[in-house]
Simulated scan of single mutants.
Amino acid sequence: MPKLLQDFSIPAVFAGFITFLIGISVSAVLVIQAAQILGASAEQISSWFWALGFGIGLSGFILSWKFKYPVATSWSTAGLALILATGSGYSLYEALGAFFISGLLTALLGFSGIFQKALSYIPQSLTSAMLAGVLLKFGITLFASMQNDWGFILSLLAVYILSKRLSPRYSIVITVIAGLALCPIFLQFHAPILQWSITKPIWMTPTFTWSAFFGLALPLFIINMASQYLPGIAMIKSYGYKPHVNQLIGWTGLTQMLLAPFGCYSVNIAAISAAVSLDDQVHPDPEKRYIAGMSCGFFYILMGIFAATLTGLLLSFPPIFIVALAGIALLGTISHNIALAFYDLAEREAALMTFLFSASGIQFFGIGSAFWGLLFGFVVLMILKFRAKPLPK
């Protein structure tokens, strides 16, 4: 406890909050839609949020505390897209069975060490190019939003740049506070009336069927590996940490499996949102940034306890508020990964193709561009590095 108090910092808590905010803001509504497609009642949907909040929050909080680096966890937006696309063919209880199996497969893959062995063969230039490509849209969207909300965006950028110059450690904290103050001035925003209530978990006995296994469990498992764990682990490594890959994947998979009967469809390592908790704006000392991961977990737990209230509050903010904060918070991470991606001249062309492919946003077989961009770049690198053996004289 004394070390925890010594390492505690306000910027780290704010970084954890922004990580949490980015993680849920884009897809909180999709969670509701996915549950409704499966036939869940209002009480069961609240249970979904309770299970997701506790599963994601506890795993991120404990893993960050245990390993002393930020382990931001989240749900899978790509997984939600899969449920929305195929969920009408299954009952709620068949889907819960698929969530259980997907978590079990994830835990087995993690604790077996297979995933970590595969990662060791991928150059950092390609993983950094993949991450830079995936994050690029956030930076572009930030500046593209000036078309309609130039006053708000320019004011927020001015605050960020000046605070970055005068007080780098607190630049994000100051920017968030400024964003809240600027909302009523530039945007249509009215504070909602909050009704506090504690969410009650509901046990829903899973049903196991072969159709749900092949049609939902396996695709969900593959998509989570490709779109969450692969870039998420790469993100942690890009900041100089040595992630305990087996433990991170194993324990998050086990958490998903245990909470699946309450509606937990995924517990993953965060990819995009995790960048905010890893950046040097959190703390100059990398060994003290784990507080951001613990803070993110704490906010997810709060979401689980007060699911309906907190989700309603966050969704009341104009979308541009979240877009602007996410874009500004990720600027440092985008530049960091671009620098790593194109540092090695011999790998630069393969890294460029990985970057562009990952930034394209296309999908094949329900798997996003991050995975395919990395795979394509790896093939290109192998071809360019291949040297034919000279013919014998």
Score class of each variant (00 low, 15 high):
131 L>W: 08
173 V>L: 15
332 G>P: 01
277 S>D: 00
6 Q>L: 14
337 N>G: 07
249 I>Q: 04
157 L>Y: 10
282 V>H: 02
257 M>S: 03
358 S>W: 12
52 L>R: 06
88 S>L: 02
206 P>H: 10
254 L>P: 02
276 V>Q: 01
325 L>E: 07
178 A>F: 14
168 P>I: 11
353 M>K: 15
170 Y>V: 07
379 V>K: 01
57 G>I: 09
303 M>Q: 10
290 Y>L: 03
18 I>Y: 07
134 V>N: 06
171 S>W: 08
4 L>E: 10
200 K>G: 02
94 E>C: 05
241 Y>F: 15
67 F>S: 00
155 S>Q: 09
206 P>E: 14
327 G>S: 08
290 Y>K: 00
105 L>M: 13
117 K>G: 15
280 D>M: 04
341 A>P: 03
142 L>T: 13
17 F>R: 08
46 S>R: 13
245 V>I: 15
184 P>Y: 09
77 T>C: 03
6 Q>A: 14
133 G>V: 08
356 L>P: 05
235 M>C: 08
250 G>N: 06
151 G>L: 09
90 Y>W: 02
371 F>N: 06
262 F>R: 05
333 T>H: 12
308 A>L: 05
202 I>H: 12
83 I>P: 00
239 Y>L: 12
15 A>Q: 09
65 W>L: 09
168 P>E: 08
89 G>Y: 02
45 I>E: 08
238 S>H: 10
364 F>V: 12
250 G>R: 10
170 Y>K: 12
73 T>K: 03
375 L>F: 14
160 Y>L: 12
364 F>I: 13
306 F>T: 00
288 K>G: 01
70 P>W: 04
217 A>D: 13
52 L>I: 11
234 A>M: 12
366 G>C: 11
320 I>Q: 07
188 Q>N: 14
248 L>I: 15
174 I>P: 06
253 G>N: 10
281 Q>C: 04
129 A>P: 01
38 L>V: 06
253 G>F: 05
283 H>P: 03
353 M>N: 11
368 G>K: 00
260 A>H: 04
93 Y>H: 06
152 F>T: 06
307 A>L: 06
291 I>W: 04
292 A>W: 02
181 A>I: 14
12 A>S: 15
212 A>P: 07
312 G>K: 05
212 A>D: 09
32 I>M: 10
161 I>V: 13
100 F>L: 05
83 I>G: 00
380 V>F: 05
107 A>M: 13
267 V>T: 08
87 G>Y: 02
198 I>P: 05
31 V>Y: 12
27 S>R: 12
231 P>I: 10
142 L>E: 11
118 A>V: 14
300 Y>K: 01
297 G>E: 05
339 A>V: 06
297 G>N: 04
282 V>F: 01
359 A>L: 14
312 G>S: 05
137 K>W: 03
212 A>S: 15
177 I>W: 05
338 I>T: 04
349 E>D: 11
202 I>L: 15
331 L>Y: 05
276 V>R: 01
241 Y>H: 14
235 M>R: 12
95 A>K: 04
224 N>V: 11
158 A>K: 06
87 G>R: 03
235 M>T: 08
185 I>G: 11
200 K>S: 13
393 K>V: 07
111 F>Y: 11
95 A>L: 04
66 K>F: 14
168 P>A: 12
203 W>R: 07
340 L>T: 05
106 T>F: 02
7 D>L: 13
261 P>Q: 04
122 I>Q: 10
193 I>H: 13
382 M>R: 15
120 S>R: 13
